[in-house]
Design a binder for these strands. Structure first.
Ligand SMILES: [Zn+2]
Ligand SMILES: [Zn+2]
Length: 699
DNA sequence: AGCACGCCGACT
DNA sequence: GTCGGCGTGCTC
């Protein structure tokens, strides 16, 4: 056979392709993993993305492939195409897409270079066979166990809206994006499950995405209860970053071998190597967790839509507060909207009340109305929840006589006072983790009267303890759930009903169904109303709807009390009416006038250096490159001035960013591709680190 | 990202 | 004298 080469995806952050010569003894195929020599490192694993009959690499630089790994069938063409699209769209080399999504044993050379000559795949298969043998022996020796039917094993009866949604989705056999807009408690999950059941019955498989790891166990249970009796116990596979290497490999094998029919998991699951997919579900599609914040900055929701289009299948995006991007697409008819407007249980949505804190004096951060509402719940034996998106005791420590405030030595932010029962008080930086003891006097003037300013969850917990000494109060935030398994423990306690008042951050807003909860108090929502970027109100509204939805899912007359200085703000006014559509329409109108997404597309380049001036200079230089060298590409492209980030310094690194905007996505991408190529060639080893983010969420 | 090469400060 | 600090360069 004639001489030929292969293009290999490697996990190396370089904007070049790597072509290798194929020795006559080997015949690698597209989608197969190979072992190749690389630079000074001995050998690494890569994935073949193309077969080439010529290459531009000079002969003296060409190297031979060492080995083709055939312990797995090649990844499918459609799967490689998906990765290639993601690489191109997010402006990164393909190796940065493919390799990080593989289970570590499939991509780390050390899995193949140990004492044993076997592959990690063979080793795992052997282990599983042994386990099965043992399990069988046990089964034979023990008596039969009747399988107990569980609560989720049978389908629930649907209301009319749900039935229509299920019918429309399951009858769709082509590409279509559905937006399932349902208020909290309206039974979106049951719609997913029954549409999913239909696709399984047709012999198809399904990808089911959820935003967070903590949401997987409850969905996993539901899916297993309902579908394992029908399709076998390996039908449901979960995939998230919490899995061990072995579990990740096992899940991967079950997907690639078509043993699994349902893949449940976090954003990485959109890269599941499943074939014959009939439906993709994205629950809570508005959630920012679907956007990866490091490495390849992809949006799993957006890739889900691309993958559905590629496979000509339906995709369902579900949310009570859809992203404005998705909502706009329903208005133009690009997506089909399916509405669930009724709560499944007979209860009503909670009554929301705004408390004007400009007019009413607060008692240690709490309004009299909120305090008496909590008291009422205690009398009735019901649960209350206080939501405050700020952990710690006080956001800053301040001297009462001079104006000294506690600051991080490594970042341009205040350090946060942490002070809770049993632990010595500390000052912590929430950006870099820097922690110090609390000074007993002001470091500037020596004054001993220094104290925390403002309220965090720890302080509210303490205040409530003084106001209600007999109540059982549980704080749930990143600090109280730091230890592995402690989050589950705290939530179990909160569910069991021993807890009277739950105090917490974002963590308590998602997914939990507290049976006796009839009051939600929201503190300091205003902080997010005016914070930074244009998406802040959208995020705030979603959070408020979500946390409000915790109240009264099983009890009538539930209340939400929101303390604000701006009760007339249109966001709060729409919230009062639980009116997402109204909020969306006013906000979209503002976006349209300002030509912001979804009416334009954005790319963000952020630069990091020791001094922010260097970062700014770098960005100015690349802007000049664009303006001088490639003016034709700039038509319809808006290049903004580079600006320092609001928090300039984090961990002694200073940051600046540059926003690029266009009303045409193709133009923007075309420009970016050419431009970044030039930047890369010009700065072969830049002293400034830079990152490119397509469709940034925070700007 | 790794890894090697290389040229200056403080150890045996 | 050399051990090791991390600046610079290279990877098909
Ligand atoms: Zn002072
Ligand atoms: Zn810091």
């Amino acid at each position: 056979m004639r001489n030929y080469w292969v293009r290999v995806a490697l996990d190396i952050p370089l904007e070049t392709f790597f072509d290798y010569h194929v020795p006559t003894t080997l015949s690698p195929q597209r989608g197969q993993r190979v072992i190749v020599p690389f630079g000074h490192q001995k050998q690494i694993i890569g994935v073949v993305t193309a077969i080439l009959d010529k290459t531009d690499i000079p002969l003296d630089k060409q190297k031979d492939i060492i080995q083709v790994l055939d312990d797995l069938p090649p990844f499918s063409d459609t799967w490689i195409d998906l990765c290639e699209f993601a690489a191109k769209y997010y402006l990164r080399p393909i190796g940065e897409v493919i390799l990080p999504v593989l289970p570590p044993p499939l991509r780390k050379i050390t899995a193949y270079t140990g004492k044993t000559t076997s592959s990690p795949v063979e080793r795992l298969d052997k282990k599983i066979r042994n386990q099965q043998k043992k399990a069988q022996q046990k089964k034979q020796s023990s008596t039969h166990q009747a399988t107990t039917p569980s609560a989720h094993s049978t389908s629930l009866t649907l209301n009319t809206e749900q039935r229509i949604a299920v019918e429309v989705i399951s009858q769709t056999q082509h590409f279509k994006t559905f937006l399932l807009h349902g208020i909290t408690g309206s039974g979106k999950t049951e719609v997913y499950l029954q549409a999913l059941a239909q696709k399984l019955a047709e012999g198809k498989s399904v990808i089911f995405l959820v935003p967070e790891i903590n949401l997987t166990p409850q969905f996993e249970q539901i899916l297993k209860d309902r579908f394992c009796p029908l399709y076998g116990e390996n039908t449901v596979v979960t995939m998230h970053s919490g899995l061990s290497d072995g579990d990740r490999l096992l899940a991967w094998l079950r997907m690639q071998r078509q043993e699994a029919k349902i893949v449940l998991g976090t954003r990485m699951s959109i890269f599941a190597p499943l074939e014959n997919i009939g439906l993709i579900i994205v629950d809570e599609e508005h959630d920012a967790s679907y956007k990866q914040q490091d490495g390849l900055r992809y949006s799993a929701r957006d890739l889900a839509i691309w993958r559905a289009k590629q496979l000509t299948i339906p995709v369902v995006l579900g949310s009570a507060t859809p992203s404005l991007e998705s909502w706009q697409h329903t208005l133009t008819g690009k997506y089909e909207k399916l509405c669930l407007t009724q709560r499944a249980k007979v209860t009503h949505l909670p009554h929301i009340k705004l408390i004007n804190t400009k007019k009413i004096p607060l008692n240690q951060g709490l309004s009299p109305d909120l305090i008496s509402a909590i008291d009422e719940r205690l009398q009735r034996g019901e649960q209350s929840m206080i939501y405050l998106n700020r952990r710690g005791f006080s956001p800053v420590l301040r001297c009462s006589s001079c104006s000294w405030t506690s600051e991080c030595i490594r970042c341009s932010v205040h350090t946060v006072l942490h002070q809770s029962a049993g632990k010595p008080a500390t000052l912590q930086c929430h950006h870099c983790g820097y922690t110090t003891r609390v000074p007993y006097k002001c470091p500037e003037c020596g004054n001993q009267d220094i104290s925390g300013l403002g309220y965090g969850t720890q302080r509210i917990e303490e205040v409530l303890g003084h106001l209600f000494p007999h109540a059982k109060i549980q704080r749930i935030d990143a600090d109280s759930t730091r230890l592995k398994g402690s989050a589950e423990k705290l939530f179990t306690e909160a569910h069991s009903g021993d807890v009277d008042i739950i105090v917490g951050t974002q963590m308590i807003a998602k997914g939990h169904d507290f049976k006796r909860l009839s009051l939600v108090g929201i503190l300091n929502a205003d902080m997010m109303l005016f914070s930074g970027d244009f998406r802040a109100p959208e995020r705030l509204f979603a959070q408020l709807i979500q946390v409000s939805g915790r109240a009264g899912r099983h009890l009538p007359d539930a209340e939400v009390l929101l303390q604000t200085e701006f009760p007339d703000h249109n966001l709060y006014q729409s919230l009062l009416k639980h009116d997402y559509a109204e909020f969306a329409s006013t906000t979209l109108e503002e976006r349209k006038i300002a030509k912001l997404p979804p009416f334009s597309y954005q790319v963000l380049i952020s630069a990091q250096a020791k001094k922010v001036e260097d970062a700014i200079d770098f960005l100015k230089t690349i802007i000049r490159m664009a303006k001088e060298d490639m003016p034709d590409y700039l038509e319809g492209i808006q290049l903004y001035d580079p600006i320092p980030l609001k928090i300039i310094r984090v961990a002694n690194i200073e940051r600046a960013q540059l926003l690029i905007e266009s009303e045409s996505r193709t133009r923007l991408h075309h420009f970016m591709q050419i431009w970044l190529q030039r930047v890369y060639q010009f700065f072969r080893t830049p002293k400034v680190k830079y990152f490119v983010e397509v469709d940034p969420l925070d700007i």
